[in-house]
Design a binder for these strands. Structure first.
Length: 293
DNA sequence: AGCCAGGAGAATG
DNA sequence: CATTCTCATGGC
């Protein structure tokens, strides 16, 4: 076991681990004493920041870590290049070290299938349940952890089992996606090089994947920073502060186009910072439960 | 076009 | 303790 392996990585720009790992983009991190334990490239790792360096214990390779945490200038480029409008400026004021992680497309697809109409705690439980049931056990720092199951392993679970794990009506969605990838009908890796509209169309053709989930997979899993997922919080922010259209709430496609128009190539990055900031009470808790009605 | 089930648990009051 | 809400989607 390569438990003992440890590396230190220089930071090219701010990295706020608390904000980054618990902002609802990744669901397997756990806070402990002075660090965080989770997975990078499906390898158990423990990370912490000390003396301005990212300290990592575990077998994840240096390139995998650089990719995952975007220690490649992506974050700095976002901070300097994105248009800081009124709200994003405030959000970045508090969370300039909140990074968009570059995650595995398969795990992202499953996690965001599970995310629909759920909360972060539930997503975490479901993801952990899948790992505990079908993921390979691996020992790390005197603990047994479970890697995220590959498509074949999840495809081997029947729908009833998935339901028993608490996935509810999302069970058939996960089962279908697992079969599609395991059978080779869906090639997630190839989506990384497809144009955004093509990736979107392919993903939304899967049952349980609508525009929101597809945008999440494209952003968090495929690393396409232009995707602008609009969940209820972003929707609220946009409806309240940006949308002046005929409908009560902005249509999804309108929000997506708005994100691109306002924040450009880094729209998804901006979306995530705004999402986290709003949820952490940035713009008055529920964005004014009293005035909206 | 709007409405609602389906599933479960945290947050809210 | 009851109600509402939660990183939505699909079917009607």
């Amino acid at each position: 076991m390569a438990d003992a392996a440890a590396v230190r990585l220089a930071l090219d720009a701010p990295l706020d681990l608390d904000a980054t790992l618990y902002s609802g983009q990744a669901f397997r991190w756990r806070h402990d004493e002075d660090g965080h334990t989770g997975f990078v490239a499906n390898e158990p790792v423990r990370v912490r920041i000390e003396d301005g360096l990212l300290h990592v214990e575990g077998a994840a390779s240096r390139p995998a870590l650089r990719c995952y945490f975007r220690l490649d200038g992506t974050h700095a480029a976002f901070l300097t290049g994105v248009r800081r409008d009124r709200w994003l400026a405030q959000a970045l004021d508090r969370f300039d070290g909140l990074r968009l992680l570059r995650q595995d497309p398969w795990e992202a697809l499953v996690a965001f299938l599970l995310s629909q109409n759920a909360n972060e705690a539930k997503i975490r439980r479901n993801v952990e349940a899948l790992a505990a049931t079908a993921g390979e056990a691996v020992s790390f720092r005197d603990r047994t952890m479970h890697r995220f199951p590959d498509p074949e392993a999840l495809a081997a679970l029947d729908e009833a089992t998935l339901r028993r794990l608490g996935l509810g009506y999302r069970a058939p969605y996960v089962a279908h996606a697992a079969r599609a990838v395991a059978d080779g009908r869906l090639d997630l890796a190839s989506l990384e090089t497809e144009p955004y509209p093509t990736a979107l169309e392919t993903l939304t053709s899967l049952p349980g994947v609508g525009p929101k989930v597809a945008d999440c997979v494209i952003l968090y899993g495929l690393g396409r920073l232009e995707a602008f997922p609009a969940d209820v919080w972003i929707r609220r922010l946009v409806d309240r502060h940006y949308y002046r259209g005929p409908n009560k709430t902005a249509p999804y496609a309108w929000i997506r186009a708005f994100g691109r128009r306002r924040f450009g190539a880094n729209a998804g990055y901006a979306q995530h910072v705004l999402f986290h900031w709003v949820r952490r009470g940035g713009a008055s808790p529920r964005m004014d439960a009293t005035t909206r009605k």
